[in-house]
Structures are given as structure tokens and as C-alpha cells.
């Protein structure tokens, strides 16, 4: 074993990761709860109605963070995939696998809240708005990744196959966004309210940022917890194998 491999193995040591995660998680959970409390207070008791959207701007405070996490989750999977393909980092596999369902849930929430915002603003639940459409395609990319993970039983093979797919998808996300924008300008009926206002006043921006921070912290709490669980799951699998091997040897 070369020296660099040794270094990576030390960094990748799952036991060390478990103890770091166990130390961080309570603090991060506390921060998440506080941020949510502050964010919800600002949303419902402080933030004024928007002059254009009225009170429905409150939906933006959960829609925008969910949409941001949908993108960040996929980027996180792509970065982990590079780690898993190039360095065969065992934690990168675990990180990519556990981020996929969490990211997919936030993508789903971005779509649902966007649609509930659209009904009063646009008059219909679904508009083939460029943003909604690209987020919908992003959800399909997530579902493909999850399905691929579930179809391949052997974890290391599943990890690398999913990593290849995730990177191909990551290269495609901007291309899909660009083509949907193009398609939308060809078909878009003029003058609908956009999901993003031109300039956001600070009374709206502050709750939005606090909620975004709260959602982001929640994502990482869930991701860290899911990663430690995935490591436990692999230990259980390994123990079961030794158990079977011992029973066979006796």
C-alpha cells in the first residue's frame, strides 16, 4: 500500500467519522431548531405582505430554500461521486447514496410549494414555467439515481454505477436548464408573475435567508444521521456474513 492510499484510508476511517458525526449532531440539531423557530417567527409575525404577491410571499420562504437544497443536494452527490470514482473513498459512496433520497424529498417539496404558490398567482396549479419544468426534470434525475441504487445489490458496484450516472446528470443539469429556458421563451404567454421578484426588500429577504439557513442545517443533520446509519447497516451486513461463515465452518 502506498503512502497516499494510507492517508486516504485514515481520513476515510468510518469509526473516526462516526465519532465526529456523533459530536457534531446534537449541536447542529440545536442550531436547526433555533433557526426554524426564528425563521417561522419572522415569517408569521414580522414579515410584511409583498406589494405584488400579498401574503402568498410566505410560501416563498419555504419554496426557495427547498429549491436551493434540491440543487445543492445534487451538487453534493456529484462531488461525492467524484470522490468515489477517483479516490474510491468509502465515505463518498455513503454520502452520495444517503443524499439522494433527502435531496429528492426537498425537490418534491419545491415542486409542491411552487404549485401551491402558482394557483393563486397564475390561476393554475401547474404552469410550464422554465423553473418548475427544470426542477421537475431534476426530480426525475434523483429518481433515476435512487432506482439505480436499489437495482444493484452489491454496494461497491452500485456506488460506482450511481456515481457515473450522477456525474452524467450533473453535466446535463445546466444543459437541460438552458434548453427549457429556450423552449419556454418560445411558448411562454407574456406577462405572468415570475417566481423571483426583481428586487427583494430586506423585510422579505431576512426571513428568507433565515429559513434557507434552517433548511440547510436540517439537510445536513439528516444527511449526517443517514450516513452514520448507512455505515451501521454495512457493519450489520458484514457481521451477518461472518456469522454465516462461522456457522458454515463449525
Amino acid at each position: 500500500m502506498t503512502q497516499t492510499e494510507g492517508l486516504f484510508n485514515r481520513l476515510a476511517n468510518p469509526t473516526r467519522f462516526m465519532s465526529i458525526a456523533a459530536a457534531i449532531l446534537p449541536w447542529l440539531t440545536g442550531v436547526t431548531v433555533i433557526l426554524f423557530a426564528v425563521g417561522l417567527y419572522l415569517t408569521f409575525f414580522v414579515a410584511p405582505p409583498d406589494y405584488q404577491q400579498g401574503e402568498t410571499v410566505k410560501i416563498m420562504f419555504i419554496h426557495v430554500p427547498a429549491a436551493w437544497l434540491a440543487m445543492m443536494g445534487y451538487s453534493l452527490i456529484a462531488v461525492s461521486s467524484i470522490g468515489s470514482l477517483i479516490w474510491r473513498h468509502p465515505l463518498a459512496d455513503v454520502s452520495a447514496k444517503t443524499a439522494a433520497p433527502i435531496g429528492a424529498v426537498f425537490t418534491f417539496l419545491a415542486l409542491v410549494t411552487g404549485s401551491l404558490w402558482g394557483k393563486p398567482m397564475w390561476g393554475t396549479y401547474w404552469v410550464w414555467d422554465a423553473r418548475l419544468t427544470s426542477v421537475l426534470v431534476l426530480l426525475f434525475l434523483y429518481l433515476g439515481l435512487i432506482a439505480l441504487w436499489q437495482s444493484i445489490e452489491e454496494p461497491s458496484r452500485a456506488g460506482r454505477a450511481a456515481a457515473i450516472l450522477a456525474l452524467v446528470g450533473f453535466v446535463n443539469v445546466p444543459i437541460i436548464k438552458f434548453s427549457v429556458d429556450w423552449w419556454n421563451t418560445l411558448h411562454q404567454p407574456a406577462s405572468v408573475a415570475r417566481l423571483d421578484g426583481p428586487a427583494i426588500h430586506s423585510s422579505i429577504l431576512t426571513p428568507l435567508l433565515v429559513m434557507a439557513a434552517a433548511f440547510t442545517c436540517l439537510f445536513f443533520v439528516l444527511h449526517l444521521k443517514a450516513m452514520t446509519t448507512e455505515i451501521l447497516r454495512r457493519r450489520v451486513e458484514a457481521l451477518r456474513m461472518t456469522q454465516v461463515a462461522r456457522a458454515a465452518a463449525e
Binding site: V137, L141, G144, L165, V168
Partner: peptide, 8 residues
């Protein structure tokens, strides 16, 4: 897996 990639 592939249909979303056909979109563009």
C-alpha cells in the same frame, strides 16, 4: 435513467 437526458 435516460429519458430525462433526452430532454435537450
Amino acid at each position: 435513467l435516460i429519458l430525462p437526458l433526452f430532454v435537450p
